[in-house]
Amino acid sequence: MYPARIIPELARQGWQAHGLALEGSWVAESFVEAGITPLTVPSRGRALWRVGRILAYLKVHEIRVLHCHKSSDLRLGALLATLRPELRLFFTDHMGVTRPKKDPYHRWAYGRLTRLFSISETTRARNLRAFPLRPERIRRLYLGIDPSPYVAGLAADERRALRAELGVPEGAVAIGLPGRITPGKGQAVWVEALARLVEARPTLAWHGVLIGGLGAGEGSNEVFVAKLRERVAALGLTERVSFAGFRGDLPRCLAALDIVCVPSRNEAFGLTVIEAMAAARPVVGADSGAIPELLDATAGRLVAPEDPEAWAEALGELAADTAMQHRLGQAGRARVLAAFTLETHIRALVGEYAGEPAA
């Protein structure tokens, strides 16, 4: 959903964006919600048959830049760039590939790229090994967010009501974990850490909040959700852990929490990390993937992703010290404003679109 997120900022900086999407897809709908009517095709295969129509669309609208965000879309992008060599073709790898892509097809497709963007140094290192491109054609470009919805504080009454809605008792430290509820996101280790926190600090008042869809339609693993609920009950944490479900108001929810956890084992970037930091929340994150690039000791704590004892220790330290929570939260928000805003991201992106040398 990245393209629709950046369209308003592209427009604000003077660029006119167009979209190409599958008919009836969420991506097509997101383009419309962002204010543009996309060109649509019934399938990726049919798009190849309609390449003449797409080329005509590019010519009529004087489009000079193509930007793909899925490797399955690059086949069409590379074909268009082959047929119209003046096009500048970009591809963002949002995951970080793990298998080499140096066969004849990939050499042809990726050879048409003006630039490949990696969303972290971690994924760039993987991409350098995987893609048939010279290092200078693979650039790290961090993602960014609009920090304005991530308020550093809520009105007292609003915060109290929202915390109650999330299941947080009065006076408890709210320890949240937002994100898709799937094995790779680390919720299982987090639950084990909370059980150890009870043992280590029996007098500490806290409440855990899982924020994320509970069904497959909302991106979560239903079997894993059920097992997680069973484990919470087995550990005697039913009254101390809430399953809040999907929330469309995540910025407000983050501001209602006291500590935000991101225990994902292999984040390609860590959008939740900078969202929590933008909300001035201290973060406890996994010391793996790209998270250490975003988070340091000035804004939170890094912990081994598979070590519940270490997680319990870090959570206990933060939960018992409100002054530290505030200090780390303010430092995190300042870091986001300095390095991870959507405006900063778009300025770097359009500089590449325009062919400007990297700073």
Rank of each mutant, 00 (worst) to 15 (best):
R196Y: 06
R196Q: 14
L197N: 06
L197M: 12
V198T: 14
V198N: 14
V198F: 03
R201L: 14
P202Q: 07
T203D: 15
T203F: 01
T203R: 14
A205E: 14
H207W: 04
H207M: 04
G208K: 14
V209Y: 04
V209E: 11
L210I: 15
G212V: 13
A216I: 05
G217L: 12
E218Y: 02
G219F: 01
S220Y: 02
V223D: 08
K227S: 14
K227A: 15
E230P: 02
R231I: 06
L235H: 12
G236K: 09
G236W: 09
R240H: 13
S242K: 09
F243T: 11
F246L: 13
F246Q: 11
R247P: 09
P251Q: 08
R252L: 14
L254V: 07
A255W: 02
A256I: 04
D258H: 13
V262Y: 04
S264P: 02
S264K: 10
R265D: 02
N266P: 00
E267D: 15
A268L: 03
A268H: 05
V273I: 10
I274V: 13
I274R: 04
E275V: 01
M277H: 06
M277I: 08
A279K: 04
A279L: 05
P282N: 11
V283R: 09
V284E: 07
A286H: 04
D287N: 14
S288K: 09
G289F: 01
I291P: 00
I291L: 10
L295Q: 02
D296E: 02
A299N: 00
G300W: 06
G300D: 07
